[in-house]
Design a protein around this nucleic acid. Structure first.
Length: 234
DNA sequence: GCGACAG
DNA sequence: ATCTTGTCGC
């Protein structure tokens, strides 16, 4: 059933790392599957953009994930799904994906149709090993993914211009790993990076289109609200 | 060794 | 991420 040269999502979930060293090894093994040569859906495409996010209950070691599908053009919510899981490992910078992905995959599976594009709350290739949450989710699902983070993580940047839509390079040394994108005039930028099968230009264009009124894209806002509600209902 | 560090 | 009151402003 598996195509040679691709990865099996089920297989990866069965071989989930038990400690930090194993997790880093998994990232190094999967990183070559990230595709950076595809432009991805064009801005304004006909289809669905799905936002995913999770919320935690540390006391009970529980994580709730939400996936909300929006019409990519109108941004109207067309579907939503949630899932609940157990937290396996503590948060370690660089290993965020291992806390979120199993439950996020479960939520994505409960959507009525396959997403055309997925927006993650975090980073893609802007990552110490170039394999952040969005890239990891992309490789496991095969779907085009984008990472939109609220903080610059370990990277540096010069502030983009004050106007909505202004960008500046997000740098790891002298390498551009993403962009700071001003989604609202005079408001702190968000940090966009490629996850899988999308160009950086289009990743920024999609992010800007999804944030007409607020700093954070509507996909992430909707998923954030839903996973909090799901967690509260347990 | 020390500090910083997506969510 | 999460813990949390009031407060400034549209």
């Amino acid at each position: 059933m598996d195509t040679p040269g691709t990865i099996s999502c089920d297989e990866e979930l069965r071989h989930w790392p038990a400690d930090e060293d194993q997790a880093r090894t998994v990232q190094d093994r999967l990183r070559p599957y990230v595709r950076l040569d595809e432009p991805g859906p064009e801005p304004g495409f006909e289809g669905t953009v799905v936002g995913v996010d999770v919320a935690y209950d540390d006391a009970r070691n529980v994580v709730a994930a939400a996936a909300v599908a929006l019409d990519a053009r109108t941004r109207a919510v067309v579907d939503e799904a949630t899932a609940v899981g157990q937290v396996s490992i503590p948060y370690v910078p660089g290993l965020l994906a291992f806390r979120e992905i199993p439950t996020v995959l479960a939520a994505l599976d409960r959507l009525a149709r396959t997403p055309d594009l997925v927006i993650c709350d975090g980073y893609g290739v802007a990552h110490p090993r170039r394999f952040g949450l969005a890239s990891h989710l992309g490789v496991l699902t095969g779907l085009p993914t984008i990472g939109v983070a609220k903080n610059p993580f370990t990277f540096r940047y010069d502030p983009p211009g004050p106007e909505r839509g202004a960008t500046s390079p997000l740098l790891d040394g002298d390498e551009e790993v993403g962009r700071a994108l001003r989604t609202q005039k005079g408001v702190k930028p968000v940090f966009v990076s490629v996850g899988h099968r999308v160009s950086l230009d289009r990743a920024c264009a999609h992010t800007l289109h999804l944030a007409p009124d607020y700093r954070i894209p509507e996909t992430t806002r909707a998923a954030d609200a839903l996973c909090r509600r799901a967690l509260a209902g347990i």
